[in-house]
Amino acid sequence: MTAIIELNGVSKSFGGIRALRDVSFTIDQGEIVGLIGPNGAGKTTLVNVMTGVTGATAGQVIFCGANVTAQRPYQAARRGIARTFQVVQPFPRMTVLENVMAGALFGGADREVNVRRAADIAREQLEFTELAALADKPAGSLTIAGRKRLELAKSLAMQPKLLMLDEVNAGLNSTEIDRALALVRKISERGVTILLIEHLMKVILSLAQRVLVLHQGELVAQGDPVAMVNDRRVIEAYLGEKFARRYQEGATGA
């Protein structure tokens, strides 16, 4: 297994808030890695640092062997790092097809795609994400689930090596979540490495091969998903120490 991305001692402060503290981990080619942690743990900030949206205060980001710590977002996109936003970011008055074309035209490594070719790629991705029927609708008119799907289609059109999904399931109902789950699995089968930020343990347990746990900006644990979900530190992070003790006592007592 070769590492696709590696973080070495990454820290990020906003004024007095230390959103990330000395975070180090690697993700291997082809893995699906889950990233969990309570609200405000620094998950989105971590993705922002990895895509150049915000600069790191300290530490390094290494992507495919190159130091990309100081990259700008468009450079990340061209290197093959794509991400979806927790708060979706469409081009609202463009059609769904045009939104996805933008990903095909500009993102992705070492490609010069013209407008016609981009339309072909975009149509493929719309088929793949089951959005083809909405191709000519303005992006602004989609439902939340549709917009999340569009974010995915747009990112996929960039033909990324690494795809980071920031709470793609938030705000979806359970049928929509099942569809999204199947989609993520299909994307992974195409050979794309995935970092999955997720609150729902069900999603993490069914998709992730490995889990990173972030708490108050620190990487407090990482490992096998089932082990992580039962890990004392993880339960603490989510439920608080007192509840964690009670939960654990209940679990061993039973």
Partner: peptide, 25 residues
């Protein structure tokens, strides 16, 4: 009709998203 025009329209609608999609805004 070119990539340039397409990219400029992306910038017009959502500059941050344009950046994320790979446009040197």
């Amino acid at each position: 009709r070119s990539r340039l025009g397409f990219g400029l329209r992306c910038i017009e609608q959502n500059e941050d998203a344009a950046d994320m999609v790979g446009i040197d805004t």
